[in-house]
């Protein structure tokens, strides 16, 4: 490699670096950035909390349901939560804009709430988690899925047992 030709190449090509923040910084589609949480599809299995090596994900009982929190200042962006999540409720976006002022350090948290509901069958209070649909054959229809979600765990089991018993 001739240094002069290298210099010539660099002069004609311009800088290799991205002009960020004055221009866009291209981000790969698979980039593992900020974590988002979708409470509507979460089954509440808490596997993400168990596999998180940094202890950044915490579930806690709240007055009105089950609260989910991922602390981005503890997160190591390993993607273990998304990898092990059976429903894809935990997802890493390509957003890497996580620099923040010191005053906002406790605000770098993604919250989610799986609310309590009243069981449409027995009237008990239970979490409105998404029902686990794996291994259910034949697959549930849309109405059946809505009905199943509105039930408490005991009534869900009864519903599925009755469904299996149908000819």
């Amino acid at each position: 490699m001739n240094v002069l030709s290298l210099l010539g190449r660099n002069l004609t090509q311009g800088p290799y670096t991205e002009p960020f923040p004055f221009g866009p910084a291209p981000t790969a589609k698979r980039f593992r950035g900020r974590v988002t949480f979708d409470a509507a599809t979460c089954e509440g299995c808490k596997i993400c909390e168990r596999v998180c090596p940094a202890g950044a994900i915490r579930f806690s009982k709240a007055k009105d349901g089950l609260a989910f929190a991922v602390w981005h200042n503890s997160c190591v962006f390993c993607g273990n939560c998304e990898f092990h999540c059976p429903t894809g409720s935990v997802h890493q976006t390509t957003d890497w804009h996580l620099a923040h002022e010191q005053a906002r350090k406790y605000a770098m948290v993604e919250f989610g709430l799986i609310p309590n509901q009243t069981c449409s069958e027995c009237g008990a209070t239970a979490l409105a988690t998404a029902p686990s649909l794996r291994g259910i054959a034949p697959p549930l229809s849309a109405e059946e899925a809505v009905t199943l979600k509105s039930l408490c765990p005991k009534c869900r089991a009864r519903f599925l047992k009755a469904r299996r018993a149908k000819p």
């Binding site: 790969a28 698979r30 980039f31 593992r32 190591v76 962006f77 390993c78 993607g79 273990n80 990898f83």
Partner: peptide
Amino acid sequence: ETVFGNRMDLGAIC
């Protein structure tokens, strides 16, 4: 970064 999602920690293995 493009194939694995990070410049150093690939997260390729389970």
